[in-house]
Design a protein around this nucleic acid. Structure first.
Length: 468
RNA sequence: GCCCCCAUCGUCUAGUGGCCGAGGACACCGCCCUUUCAAGGCGGAGGCACGGGUUCGAACCCCGUUGGGGGUGCCA
């Protein structure tokens, strides 16, 4: 009886997707309940899209959720020799062949022949020598079927003839995910591969490679249902709010998120929904996970979060809320410290970070408008610059300076005043560029637009009824 | 196009052949409580995609249809 070993294998894309969080959670629950190990492995075979700071983000997010790992993180980028050894073995068995087709050539041949997309096996019998500049492809068998008993979906089966000769090594010599994944799962003794449904089509390839490498019995596969948006499409970074840290920043409690995620695709049965971490560990059943996609419903998450909030003692609630509040403004705390004479003044210097819309003193508004004839033009120029620039204090400063110059305001100080009023509602406060940075681009732009409209409305009104 | 998968209220789900005249939760509506708003209590509307089988009996099993999704990269 071998102990359960599962793994979470994210690619370092710069943020931790809620779908990844759910996958990580189910792996973690299964490992903890079975008394097994949970391994963290970073799938960074594609150096081109690797982000140096991404791993830290993944670790931070998992730690926030309370998912601790027993081993790792391992990095595929440091394990290339292992993949090379596996490639050597496959090569010696004649299971790999070199290919110098470009994807464009493949596409053109397919189109010309009226074939569906996918590699056409052009080099399969050409006998090309493996060499730099040539990719290596797996010689997929043309007969037979590849199937497995998926823990959540039951028997899944593919006709081998429908599986293309997929690449395992790029022409630049780098091993591909599909190969690295199999080699690592074997090397790390992974017993259960629990991952998203989007990996189902990869699974027959994994099994084929696994067997070709003679790695013994393959792991048990469990493909979790996808998390979808309101349109029932896979959650994606472009369309949807998918970064776990965004939910954290908006004040969701990790224990509520933990509980909610556990309910996506699984249920304890009966009427219960609020379950502690311990209850989830003991009651979770991998083989009861549903196979249909689940909508990530923030409204329901919020309701659950509210229940967790109410369940806190008043002192715990105060502590958690204070901690969150502090985390929101602490990046500019040193600047506030220099300017505040009393603690009570701190509030008026940071309130713009918390208010949904700025509150502007009418007298200050009037004063700034009087002193800055180019008010509207400046806001417009600043908005245009802010949309383009990198969202860092130095770049924001430069964009502001350029916006000022564009409307004939050469002094940076003069260019700042209208922006500050629009964005913070005040004429004094912590340094503007740090404040903007912390506020975030979208909120900053929205406030600039609101102030501009207000000014235009006033101008229109005064033009309609000129003062006597 | 081809391959694979999925299908219970708007949403997350309970349901594994009789306990289902289908239960809970979120959202929605109404009432109560209440100085307000929440919270809480009570009630309401709302679903087994469709068609064939199998069976004494089907939300549950089988087949088909329809609808939806995933994949189809020298990405992961």
């Amino acid at each position: 009886m071998s102990a359960v070993r599962v793994r979470m294998a994210p690619s370092p894309t710069g943020y931790f997707h809620v779908g990844s969080a759910r996958t990580a959670l189910f792996n973690w629950l299964f490992a903890r309940q079975q008394g097994g190990q949970f391994v963290l492995r970073i799938e960074d075979t594609d150096l081109a899209r690797n982000r140096a700071d991404a791993t830290a983000g993944i670790e931070r997010a998992m730690t926030w959720l309370g998912l601790d790992w027993d081993e790792g993180p391992y990095f595929q980028s440091e394990r290339a020799q292992l993949y090379e050894a596996a490639i050597g073995r496959l090569l010696s068995k004649g299971l790999l062949y070199a290919c110098d087709c470009t994807s464009q050539q493949v596409a053109e041949r397919n189109q010309a022949a009226g074939r569906p997309p996918g590699y056409d096996g052009f080099c399969r019998e050409r006998g090309l020598e493996p060499s730099p500049g040539r990719a290596l492809r797996f010689r997929t068998p043309h007969q037979g079927r590849t199937s497995w008993a998926d823990v959540v979906r039951g028997e899944v089966s593919y006709d081998n003839a429908s599986i293309e000769d997929f690449a395992v090594r790029k022409s630049n010599g780098q091993a591909l995910f599909i190969l690295a994944n199999v080699v690592d799962d074997a090397d790390m003794g992974i017993t259960h591969v629990i991952r998203g449904e989007d990996h189902v089509p990869n699974t027959p390839k994994h099994i084929l490679l696994w067997d070709a490498l003679g790695l013994g019995p393959h792991p048990v596969f469990a493909h979790l249902p996808l998390l979808v948006n309101a349109a029932r499409k896979k959650l994606s970074k472009r369309r949807d709010k998918v970064a776990l840290e965004d939910y954290r920043d908006e004040g969701y409690l990790p224990e509520a998120m933990f509980n909610y995620l556990a309910l996506l695709g699984w249920s304890p049965g009966g009427d219960r929904e609020i379950l502690s971490r311990e209850q989830l560990v003991s009651e979770f059943r991998l083989d009861q996970v549903k196979s249909s996609p689940a909508f990530f419903d923030e409204q329901k998450l919020a309701a659950l979060n509210a229940e967790y909030l109410r369940a806190l003692s008043p002192s715990d609630f105060t502590a958690r809320a204070s901690e969150w509040l502090a985390s929101r403004w602490s990046p500019i705390a040193p600047f506030v410290q220099e300017r505040a004479r009393t603690l009570s003044e701190v509030y008026s210097m940071v309130d713009f970070l918390f208010l949904p819309e700025v509150r502007t003193d009418p007298a200050e508004w009037a004063k700034v408008r009087r002193q800055h004839p180019a008010f509207v033009a400046l806001l417009e120029a600043a908005s245009a610059g802010y949309e383009q620039c990198e969202w860092e204090p130095a770049s924001i400063r430069q964009a502001t300076q350029e916006a000022g110059a564009a409307v004939g305001v050469s002094a940076l100080a003069k260019a700042q005043a209208p922006v500050r009023l629009a964005v913070t509602g005040r004429t004094v406060g912590p340094p503007l560029f740090e404040s903007l940075h912390l506020l975030g681009r979208s909120r900053a732009l929205a406030r600039l637009a609101a102030a501009r409209e207000r000014a235009l409305r006033e101008d229109a009104a005064s033009a309609a009824s000129p003062p006597a």
